[in-house]
Amino acid sequence: MATSSTSPKPSVGILSIGDMGVGIARLLRHHGYEVYTVGAGRSQHTLNRIKSAQIKALDTDEALVAESDIILSIVPPRDAVATAQRAHQACHSHTAIKRRQERTGLGRKLTYVDLNAVSPRTTRAIGALFSTPSNHLPTSPRLQGIRRSFSFHRADSESEQPELQPVGVDFLDGGIIGGPPSLREDQTWKRPSIVLSGPRHSEVLPSDFTELLNVRVVGDTIGAASALKACFASLSKGMIALSILSFTTAHQAGVLPALEEHLREFNPGALAAAKSGLTGMPPKAYRWVDEMRQINETFVEEGGFGKDVLGETHGVFDGIAEVYKLIADDTVLGEERVESRKRGTEVSDVVECIGDGIKAKKRKVAGDNWRRNWS
């Protein structure tokens, strides 16, 4: 792909349109890029987002592959594998192949950038998917553990046709550090850092595109960007999890005001970070469950902090994943949306909701145990 500023802007497909996806879409649209996504099967809430951001909604994955020069995968970690499988299958569709050839000519590759918060091991397996003709991921127990049933939005069944060469894919590893892009009052953009790694990155992504998205290349190998993202997120989201444990326990013990008083005097930075993290966390907790598990895998696989080194305590971030799972599944905080906050905007309400969730979870577990013992 040409990198000259005089070349036509590449068309960009985004899967999917969550808070980060719509922020990046708005940034790209503001600067004249065509942005596509798949609208079929999405909620009315998401369809409204798509319309408000002036994104073109397509009916199938095949159409997205055909119309996009670059696809950005920005989904919850639990969906990263299934989303890659969707794109991979669409690249083998006769409909997509023919339409893409009409639009770009023969041999034009698609660039697929995985920007999800997954481990280097998962990223490498996804990358391997695009380099093999198989419709299945390489065998991996861990991948099987995070795969999620996904509803494919495919074109109608194609009749028997001569074999066509699948759409070629250049795969890049990425991660997003920071919040979604947003337009400031002075009409400049606040942007996160998009870290990127992989071969031929400078050849397959135009320089204007990477500058606009604030891309920072951290290596030529698949997995480097994912490792950096995991290490960064472990500090920020790990600290929020510790704040959940600390502040909720202080509330339950009746010493929360005293905890805040002592933090204000002896560690004001920690108090400010804890308050911001606790009140900002609720709408995102469900996304962080699998991200914490992927971080744990990164620490084991890349850092060497496995069972042979740390014993049975090696799954520290697997435990943190359960903290966020409690928030998402067993408290009213899990129902929050970024655009329409109702609960958890104050620390006192966050810990109150978590305390109620703990009680409800204990009652549920006790009831399940009673039923098992009775039977």
Rank of each mutant, 00 (worst) to 15 (best):
M1Y: 10
A2E: 08
A2L: 10
S4F: 05
V12Q: 07
G13A: 03
G18L: 07
D19I: 02
V22D: 00
E34F: 07
S43T: 04
T46P: 00
T46Y: 05
L47T: 02
N48F: 03
R49H: 09
K51T: 01
S52P: 03
A53R: 04
D61L: 12
D61F: 14
V65Q: 12
I71G: 03
L72F: 05
D79E: 13
A80Q: 04
A82M: 07
H88K: 05
C91A: 15
K98M: 11
R99K: 08
R99M: 10
R100N: 06
E102R: 14
R103T: 08
V113F: 00
L115I: 09
S119H: 01
T122E: 00
R124T: 08
I126R: 12
L129D: 01
F130D: 05
S134A: 04
S134I: 06
N135W: 11
L137V: 10
S140K: 05
R147Q: 14
R147D: 11
A155Q: 15
Q161F: 09
P162M: 01
E163K: 12
L164A: 08
Q165H: 15
F171T: 02
L172K: 01
L172F: 03
G175C: 06
I176Q: 08
G178M: 02
G179L: 15
P180C: 02
R184D: 07
W189H: 00
V195Q: 09
P206W: 10
N214D: 06
R216D: 11
V218P: 05
G219R: 00
T221R: 10
I222T: 09
A227T: 13
A230K: 14
L242H: 13
V255N: 05
L256P: 01
E260M: 12
L263P: 13
F266L: 15
N267V: 10
G269A: 13
A270F: 14
A270G: 10
L271N: 13
A272L: 15
K275D: 08
S276L: 12
L278V: 07
P282V: 02
W288N: 13
D290P: 13
R293V: 06
Q294R: 09
T298L: 10
F299W: 06
V300A: 08
V300K: 06
V309P: 15
V323K: 01
Y324V: 04
L326H: 15
L326S: 14
A328S: 03
A328E: 08
D329E: 14
D329K: 10
E335P: 05
R337F: 15
E346I: 01
V347H: 00
V347S: 04
V350P: 04
E352V: 01
G355V: 09
D356T: 00
D356V: 09
I358V: 14
A360G: 06
A360K: 09
R363I: 06
K364P: 02
G367M: 07
W370S: 08
R372L: 14
